[in-house]
Design a protein around this nucleic acid. Structure first.
Lengths: 340, 340
DNA sequence: GCGGATGTTTTTAACGTTCAAAACGTTCGT
DNA sequence: ACGAACGTTTTGAACGTTAAAAACATCCGC
């Protein structure tokens, strides 16, 4: 492992000159620069990031707590992580994974990681209604950005990036409308979820705009399972006026809908159009393919990193208005809504 | 941010004494220790891990390359990552995520991370036949451990942890046998996959032991999709002697089998028993539940970390025999093989 | 009460880097 | 030819920690 000192000796310059060759090459005379660079190359020198971080007090590491909800599947987490890593790397940073208890109980872990200078800041996800983590981190002056809005927060929340669920539902309704459906139902979750209310609102308002009925067409599922989606769909089909389109809050619920349709001899995409959310691996692997609203992961990730790294953490000047970015999902159309 | 110096001043001892209070408390007189600890607590001191790493040249960070196979779903990656993080944290370490090109093209990235002292070593996964990464890392003396054996490697591979796929298949066959099945088929992948050959071998040998037929019952699927699983299952059902049990190499293929059974009016678990591999979220979310072979993630993760951290990287004494741990999967029984 | 063993604390130096300031060298206007 | 201005390079110090050695204190046997 070569050090600056060794490179300097080899190139017959001072240590600082080698440092400048890397961090401020314009300060060197061209011939010196070339000589130093040759030595760097020859000795295969790589700066020791610990020493650098110690000096500059910036570790170029971003913490992300790997979620572990026992009863919830994370079908797109690998996509998210990959995008997040890639985005971090374009700025010379990396992602540090850790585990922590859910909600505010986990906050001491965040504090500890930051205090030990293992990370510069955090990316949060799995934001919940009244999420207390934003306020906590803000109080401690720990830089962070959240994937997902904080719903119904009394204090001003921190910076976030999110996907416009209402717009997504509206896109799904519009698509089903344009393929001829006139009674479009919605499979939802309990009211406590801000995400669910957002997507539900988008369905309702677009239906109203198009003059479509909504009464009796919104179903609440107790949890995010295939069986719950199936139960709600069965109830809809058993009603006096069954729907010819179903917008589901998740791919899992949509899978339940597809199953019930199949059981009853109805053809998804022909008799009833179905859409899901998140474009999980399931959507492309199920038959027929499930139309679903894809989250723009790469864009989400680069916005998260951009906000976090542009946060004036050192300057201390509170910008007042935290960054908020609402991104648009993309409707990926497959056989469940438009056969062929 | 308090430093050792400030704590030392507050406790009226030398800096080294505070350091010892943390790293070698037995060296301090009990009353001094208590006084120092009070100051540490009062000032909310946390050691700066960069400074510590610089001095000790151990960063306590383990690199893991987040996989991105376009056509492959990582349904249990979140479980794996969570287990890996948790295991690392029990030894005071953390996981650093990064991206890299697949196979040997990504090796310079590994080298760079190690040379810059961002990580101490690596956990590899997605090991492939003739995987060149082991040899490469070994040459560079970079510590690593692999989740997954290196199949058909000419040179001696590095340390690994893996799950006994052959034993898993055998368990599945045994279970189907004990629930009355006598013609048990196997859904496999192309021959190029060592993993597939391993699991296939377990099915074949247990069938032979039990006096069950195997001829014409092993199907090769071209890729890991529901449709391929369905195609293979359909072919089996169309044969002169259709099977009454199906052991699938993956949950996805098993899902294809379940679909075809449903389409043909056969009841999974009653008419034909089906098992999958990996116990992905799909297995518990599909109806009926899919019997599947669960990988012991927590055990895998702690073995990986144990091997990596016990590697005598500093001593330089090559132990000669790299650690190899073959763990047993667990059969999780659900409705697809045993209704009720 | 003295040498030695043991227990506790401090001193010195180093890990590899960057910042700030000083030193050196060259060019140029007057 | 002198000093100012600029461009390039070096010096000195610091980031916060720990290893190793030295210093100091205490206790014991004789």
């Amino acid at each position: 492992m070569a050090t600056l000192k060794q490179v300097a000796a080899h190139a017959e310059v001072s240590v600082q000159t080698v440092s400048n060759a890397l961090n401020a090459p314009h300060r060197l005379r061209p011939d010196t620069l070339e000589r130093v660079n040759r030595s760097i190359e020859l000795l295969n020198y790589r700066p020791n990031s610990n020493a650098r971080s110690l000096r500059t007090s910036a570790v170029e590491l971003i913490g992300y707590c790997v979620p572990s909800w026992p009863n919830q599947t994370h079908l797109v987490m690998d996509q998210f992580l990959h995008a997040l890593c890639a985005a971090a790397e374009t700025t010379g940073r990396h992602i540090l994974l850790f585990t922590a208890p859910a909600a505010v109980e986990g906050m001491p872990v965040y504090d500890d990681l930051h205090a030990r200078r293992l990370v510069d800041g955090f990316v949060l996800s799995q934001t919940e209604t009244h999420d207390p983590r934003h306020g906590w981190l803000k109080d401690k002056q720990i830089p962070f950005v959240s994937f997902g809005r904080v719903w119904k927060q009394s204090t001003q929340p921190g910076p976030w990036v999110d996907v416009d669920g209402a717009a997504g539902s509206a896109m799904a309704v519009q698509h089903l409308y344009e393929t001829g459906r006139r009674r479009i139902a919605f499979l939802s979750w309990p009211k406590s979820s801000g995400l669910a209310e957002d997507r539900l609102a988008g369905w309702r308002s677009r239906c109203k705009e198009l003059g479509l009925p909504t009464s009796g067409l919104a179903m609440r599922c107790r949890e995010d399972t295939i069986d719950e989606g199936a139960r709600a769909t069965a109830a809809l089909l058993d009603s006096a006026q069954p729907p010819d389109g179903i917008v589901a809050l998740s791919d899992i619920l949509a899978l339940g809908a597809l199953r019930v349709l199949g059981d009853r001899g109805l053809v998804p995409g022909v008799d009833v159009g179905v859409t899901g959310f998140d474009d999980s691996p399931l959507a492309s692997v199920v038959s027929p393919g499930l139309t679903s609203l894809r989250q723009p992961m790469d864009q989400i990730a680069s916005e998260l990193i951009a906000i976090l790294t542009e946060t004036p953490s050192l300057t201390g000047t509170t910008t007042g208005v935290p960054a908020e970015r609402l991104l648009q999902p993309e409707l990926v159309i497959r056989g469940s809504s438009a056969p062929g």
